[in-house]
Every structure is written in C-alpha cells, then in structure tokens.
Design a protein around this nucleic acid. Structure first.
Lengths: 141, 141
DNA sequence: GGCGAATACTTAGACAGACTAAGTTAGTAT
DNA sequence: ATACTAACTTAGTCTGTCTAAGTATTCGCC
C-alpha cells in the first residue's frame, strides 16, 4: 500500500510482534539450550567479550548476565578469563563444546525457518527480504 | 535482492528475530502490566474465552494460563465465569478496568512504535508495510 | 603515595513466566 | 453404574528478569 500512514503501520506492527515472538520460541523448542542461551553464545562467536558488553548488547542488567553466564559455564559451554590489563574485568569466551552447540542449534533454527519460508510464495519471501534491513533499524535509536 | 535463496533469507531472519523481541520488550517497558498480560487482555477484547482457548492461542500449557489469569483476576482486570452448558468450563472476560487498561497500554505501545517508525525513510516504512502480511503467515502451518 | 570516588562484577532476594505431574470435578459412553 | 475422558487447578521446579547491597580494583587528584 506504501501509504504514509505511519500510525496505522505501527498498529499493524504492534499486532504482529507477538506472533513473531511465538515464531522465535518455536525455532528453539526442543533444543538443548534456551533461546536466551543461544543468543548469548552467538555474541561470543567472534571472540571473548566482557560481561558489561554482553549485558548491554542483550539489553539486560549485569546481574542477569552473571546468572546466565554462570549457567553456561556450569554446562561447559563458555569459560571465564581475566583481563590482563584490568583485574576488575572478566571476559567470557566459547569453549569448543559451546561452539559446537551454537552451530548445531543455529542449523536447526535455520532449517525450521527455511521450512516455514518455503511455504510462502516467492513474492512474499522477496517482501520479507526487502523489509529486513528496515526492521533491523527499528528500536536502535 | 529478491533472490530465491530461501535458506539465506532464513539466516537473515534468524538473526533479526532476537532484535524484534527486544523491540517488543521496549514497547511495554515501564507499563503497568507485562507484555504477556497485555497480550492475554488482547485476546479477551472480543468477548469471553475459555481457558483452553487462551492457552492454545498463546501457545502455552493450561497451568501457565491458569497462573496468568489468577494474577489478572487479582489485579481486577479480568473476571472468571461459569459456562452454563458445561460446568467444567471456566470462561474469562475483561472487566471495565481491564478494558481501560488494555486500551491505555495499546496506545502507549503504538505511540512508541510510531516514534520508531518515523525515524525510518518512507521507503523503509513501505517495505515493512508490504512484508507484514507475509510475516503474519509464517509459523502458522 | 595515599584517599575518596568510580567502575566491574557477584551475591542475595524477589517475582513473572514457563514446564510437568498429579489432583479434582464434571461430562460421556457403554 | 462404572470407567474413561475432558477441563481446569494445585504443587513443585527452573529460567529469566529486576533491584539492592557487597567486594575488589582502578582512577583522579592533592
């Protein structure tokens, strides 16, 4: 429709957001880790990160991240290390097992989404493709 | 790019889904009810529903819905009633206060999303507008 | 070079939200 | 009438989130 009715679009988007959350939940249903754990592992893929960074990136408070990292550490998926330049800082990195787990869950998620997307028409898939960069910008202000 | 790379699209979508969840969280941050409570109230807007229906619609188990409705009932936002045709069934409906609260939170959410959307270009908004129906179809199979 | 403030993180305690298992009450079928 | 099924609640456990308070380390500055 390409209208200029920003508020009307906001209403539609508001309605769809819950649906997308349910979709996300389904992508990791039955997986050996939760959606949040998967998400944190993903942040570590590029190398070690500090606790503060992780908390900010995931929009949670530091204590929440402490708890999540504790559990991932107990599960052997991440390891804490010290920052040689600042003894207050703890860095977190993936273990080999954590990396393996991350990739396995990612493949499973992508397979699920691929199946879902393949039920759409090519035009619908193209529409989503075009909209993703715009959706990515939302909420970053 | 309107490619036919469904798997590649699935990967992009997988990456964006978490971002959209954070966006949803922000839409009800600071509100007097949680995202889930808002969502349940929304299901009751069209009239009374039974517990089983609500649980299915929100993709949770019955006991989870029982707890949520308990809290909403304690808060005076919904009321339980009996089904005259089947004494096992409990129906749930909005109270006047619940309806008022639902509308207030909805306005606040939509205002937030409108502000966010207004930071995009008209083309980006148009892209989201076109993609929403396709996103709505995802995961319904 | 030492003292107060700020920073990075953890611990503790609370509560929402989700699950499974088990219990209660009511309808259904034979 | 009895057994089965359906609808819901209760109880117990776990994750995810928060705030408040505690510990350890670094920084600023005199």
């Amino acid at each position: 429709m390409t209208t200029d009715d920003t508020r009307g679009l906001a209403e539609s988007l508001s309605r769809e957001l819950r649906h997308l959350v349910l979709l996300l939940r389904r992508t990791t249903a039955g997986q050996p880790i939760t959606t949040q754990q998967y998400s944190v592992l993903g942040s570590l893929e590029g190398g070690g990160r500090r606790m503060t960074e992780l908390a900010e990136e995931h929009a949670v408070q530091l204590p929440t991240m402490t708890v999540q990292i504790n559990r991932l550490e107990e599960a052997g998926l991440v390891a804490r290390a010290a920052d040689p330049a600042d003894a207050r800082v703890r860095t977190v990195e993936l273990t080999d097992e954590g990396r393996t787990r991350l990739y396995a869950v990612r493949q499973s998620r992508i397979a699920y989404l691929t199946r879902q997307l393949s039920t759409l028409t090519p035009e619908e898939r193209a529409a989503i493709d075009v909209a993703l960069p715009a959706l990515a910008k939302l909420g970053r202000s």
